[in-house]
Design a protein around this nucleic acid. Structure first.
Length: 224
DNA sequence: AGTTGATCATAC
DNA sequence: GTATGATCAACT
């Protein structure tokens, strides 16, 4: 695949992103000599990683924004032709091990969401992967209202983790930031401190943005 | 149809 | 196992 150097500025990053808009995955795969899979069943993160390559992201699997020098996180998001998100958006894993040492201000979630480059991927119903079209990118910073909601959700989650209430750590909580399993499968377990201070095991979890939240972000409406 | 829980590839 | 990139698929 053609290699792309890291962008030197946010302007350059946005310029690159805008040049991808309205192109299909088939076009881009040809242009950058990439092997486009037939479907995402076995490579669910393929589109996201492809767009990372095209824009010159470097973070790999480090827990930091995709463009560390620019402080920008890249998120691809599948939308239908009307602009409605088809999925939630994964943000980062939940720290289940030393939750008491975590503060919102220094959290990975806050670092990543401070500045996000949204790359919508337009999905027509029942159409193959290679016909998906890149939409117009959106450089987003959360508003004060959005920050408040995200912070509250994060703090309520981490409080449950600190108290060892893993049974309450499910997808039903959180207005914008939701907690769901994040593992290879449901048999994967990780050591944690339970509600009585005992060592137990639980499923690894991740923070996800609900699609109701990202929908409003993408249409530039305030979330309140 | 929307939501919640489960799952897949890969690097280290 | 844990982190990245997410979407799949069962359930309500």
């Amino acid at each position: 695949m053609t290699t792309v150097t890291p962008p030197k500025s946010i302007e350059q990053l946005l310029e690159r992103a805008e040049k991808l808009a309205s192109k299909s995955l088939a076009q881009l795969a040809e242009e950058f000599r990439a092997q486009l899979p037939d479907h995402l069943l076995l490579e669910k993160g393929w589109v996201g990683q492809f767009i990372e390559h095209l824009l010159g992201a470097t973070s790999g699997s480090l827990p930091q924004p995709d463009f560390p020098e620019l402080g920008v996180e890249l998120k691809t998001i599948p939308i239908n032709p009307l602009g409605k998100p088809l999925e939630s958006t994964f943000v980062s894993v939940v720290n289940l091990h030393q939750p008491a040492s975590e503060q919102w201000e220094t959290s990975i979630v806050k670092k990543k969401l401070e500045h996000v480059l949204w790359m919508p991927i337009i999905v027509h119903p029942n159409s193959p992967l290679n016909q998906r079209i890149i939409g117009m990118p959106l450089l987003w910073r959360p508003s004060a209202d959005e920050w408040q909601i995200l912070k509250n959700d994060w703090e309520e989650t981490m409080e449950k983790v600190c108290l060892g209430k893993f049974g309450q750590l499910n997808a039903r909580f959180g207005q914008a930031l939701q907690v769901r399993p994040k593992a290879a499968n449901s048999k994967v377990l990780t050591d944690v401190v339970g509600s009585d201070g005992e060592i137990t095991q639980t499923l690894p979890r991740g923070f996800y943005l609900r699609s109701s939240f990202t929908q409003k972000v993408l249409t530039q409406l305030s979330y309140s």
